[in-house]
Design a protein around this nucleic acid. Structure first.
Lengths: 245, 245
DNA sequence: GCCAGCATGGCACATCGTGCCATTCGGTCG
DNA sequence: CGACCGAATGGCACGATGTGCCATGCTGGC
């Protein structure tokens, strides 16, 4: 259906390359792919800035394209709607969360693994991450006021839940009830979302990581699906980056 | 911003009148309001049928309007997008859930009240309710395949969570932590959603009510927010039908 | 240096969603 | 019963959205 792109808009867009390691020496990216990632980030930045400044309703896709220095047609090759343009900012933390979670050591109980991953994902490791976190906070504050942005937020939330399922399945004992896994994914994901929303809405700048851990504990205390016996996480690298819907 | 309508599209559209009692003698509705409700139901039916038949992508708003016997302009006065037209089918059960929950007797623990309400909401009381449930099941099966319908499903889910908060607040002890309430609302709502999704996806026609109760128990067992001491539910009638977002 | 592949830009076009105005119909008051 | 008022509808126009198609230019491999 789509002509050019292998990973079409609408996917949980993993920036492709900066896993847990810093992005210092990544020579595996071709120059073309670098420019594409750069363009995507530039569009997201432009969109977030314009949305925060004027409100999403007063911004057109053409305006974002102009601000990002590309044509309108190219914009729609990167994102399906103007609101989707900010999705990379919202999914950045999610990717780290899933990566850390998938690499959890085998002995850790699932709830404990979730907590640690949440802490790492919400604790900025370097300067750039701290700035991204701050920009994301500003974006989160603009979301409740705009239906289009709320839609993106909902979609990211749903996509995250779907992406959590294979990761948790890989961590859990093979005979775990799939329904339990889904419920655990939904609970952990909701805890994360509510914590982040509360953190963004609150004027006091509380520690988002601790807030998230607190929410997680309340929700998942009795959902401790049995952990897999071996430390081997079946297809963890396969499970994580999937999430096309 | 909107010229004519007091309750604009995008709200959790309570069909306004058929609470727990059958719709037999409702003379409180003016004839104009009856016709409006009738038109809305007719649009929803037309949209659901067309979506199920051809797939949502192949259906235009004009097609739905023609099928429902109204003009395109009028269609957009009832719903903001073509996908939103099916929202009434999805929120019908939600309304019953909230109504029953808000009327829960004061001694019942919150989790118990939630379970009972879920059971009542998902157990059709009469012939019409059973048919609506069946039609909704068909619609739910079409949702995963279409991005626009998924968006509506997400929005209904989010709106339900927001509507749950004031109801639960009214039921809980006044000193309950608002964060706990939000988490409980999210947990209960997610349990409900996953149960319904599983029920719709599964070929075997399991009992949706029992499935939902099962999911609820797993998620909310340790979230038993203290119940309000008096049986009086503070502003239950006020809290329930709000939910504009 | 040549060539295949891919990203981009421009154009056209169907659809979407809304503001504006005229018309019609239900509900109410004299 | 007739007249008025408000609300719902329909038609029209227009900006914005999102996509197919083709030409162009640049990247990466031979």
């Amino acid at each position: 259906m789509l002509a050019h792109y292998a990973a079409p808009p609408g996917a949980l867009t993993y920036p492709a390359g900066m896993s847990a390691a810093p992005q210092s020496p990544s020579p595996r990216l071709s120059l073309t792919e670098r420019r594409k990632a750069e363009t995507e980030r530039e569009i997201a930045r432009a969109a977030a800035d314009l949305f925060s400044a004027r409100g999403a309703a007063a911004v057109t896709a053409e305006g974002i394209a102009r601000e990002a220095g590309i044509s309108l047609r190219t914009f729609y090759r990167y994102f399906r709607t103007k609101e989707e343009a900010v999705a990379p900012l919202l999914t950045g933390g999610v990717r780290r969360w899933l990566d850390v979670l998938a690499a959890a050591p085998g002995q850790l109980p699932l709830t404990e693994a979730l907590e640690r991953a949440v802490r790492q994902a919400l604790t900025p490791q370097d300067e750039a991450a701290a700035e991204a976190l701050h920009r994301t906070r500003g974006l989160l504050r603009a979301i409740p006021g705009d239906p289009g942005l709320r839609t993106v937020w909902h979609r990211v939330h749903a996509t995250t839940e779907e992406a959590l399922v294979p990761v948790l399945t890989g961590l859990a004992r093979p005979d775990a009830d799939p329904l339990d896994i889904r419920l655990l994914a939904a609970a952990a994901n909701s805890a994360m979302r509510i914590a982040v929303e509360s953190w963004a809405a609150d004027d006091a700048d509380r520690n988002p990581a601790e807030l998230a851990v607190q929410c997680l504990r309340k929700l998942t205390a009795n959902l401790d699906v049995p952990r897999a016996p071996s430390g081997r996480t079946t297809g963890a690298d396969d499970g994580a980056p999937a999430g096309t819907l």
